[in-house]
Simulated scan of single mutants.
Amino acid sequence: MKYLTDQLLIEVYHRAVDLQLDPDFIELLNTEIERRNIRLAQVVSA
């Protein structure tokens, strides 16, 4: 995860949700997003 830029992490997260990938994978992405203090609500509205 540390090799992903914030932008790429967000894109991967949204794509994983859209494709309804494994919930554990989505949770892993979400945990990393929270660890980096990225707020998805701000990203979506930006």
Rank of each mutant, 00 (worst) to 15 (best):
Q7T: 14
F25K: 10
F25I: 11
A41H: 08
T31E: 15
Q20A: 13
V12T: 04
D18E: 04
Q42K: 15
V17S: 04
Q7K: 12
D22P: 00
E11M: 02
Q7H: 12
V17R: 00
V12F: 00
D6Q: 07
L8R: 08
I26C: 06
I38W: 06
L8G: 03
Q7Y: 13
D24H: 03
R36V: 10
D22Q: 09
L40G: 00
N30G: 14
V12H: 01
A46T: 03
A41D: 07
N37H: 13
V44E: 11
T5D: 08
H14R: 01
E32L: 09
D18M: 09
Q20M: 10
L29C: 12
V17I: 12
R15E: 12
L8Q: 08
R36Q: 08
L21N: 12
Y13K: 05
R39P: 03
L29M: 10
Q42Y: 14
Q42R: 15
S45R: 13
E27C: 10
Y13W: 09
Y13M: 04
R15L: 11
L19V: 04
E32F: 02
Y3L: 00
L28A: 14
E32C: 06
E27V: 11
R36T: 10
I10Q: 06
N37F: 12
A41W: 07
D18L: 11
D24L: 10
K2A: 11
D6W: 06
E11H: 13
N37D: 09
I38L: 07
I33Q: 04
N30M: 13
I38E: 00
R35T: 02
N37T: 08
L40N: 03
Y13L: 06
L40S: 00
T31W: 11
A16C: 09
Q7S: 13
Q7G: 08
Y3I: 03
R35Y: 09
V43T: 11
L40H: 01
R39V: 13
T5Y: 05
V44H: 04
Y3T: 03
E34I: 15
L28P: 04
E11P: 05
Q7C: 09
R39W: 09
V17A: 05
R15P: 00
D24Q: 10
R36H: 13
I26R: 05
F25Y: 14
L21G: 11
L29N: 04
I26N: 07
Y13S: 04
L4N: 02
N37Y: 04
L29P: 03
Q42D: 11
S45N: 13
D18P: 00
K2D: 11
N30R: 13
A16G: 06
N30T: 14
L29I: 07
H14Q: 03
N30W: 13
A46W: 08
L9R: 05
L29D: 02
R35I: 04
P23G: 00
A46L: 09
H14F: 00
L40F: 03
L29A: 05
R35Q: 07
L21Y: 12
D22F: 06
P23F: 01
H14V: 04
A46G: 07
Y13G: 01
T5V: 09
P23D: 01
D18C: 02
M1Q: 12
M1N: 09
E27D: 14
P23N: 02
V12L: 01
I33D: 06
T5G: 03
R15F: 12
A41E: 05
L21I: 13
N30Y: 15
V17M: 05
F25A: 12
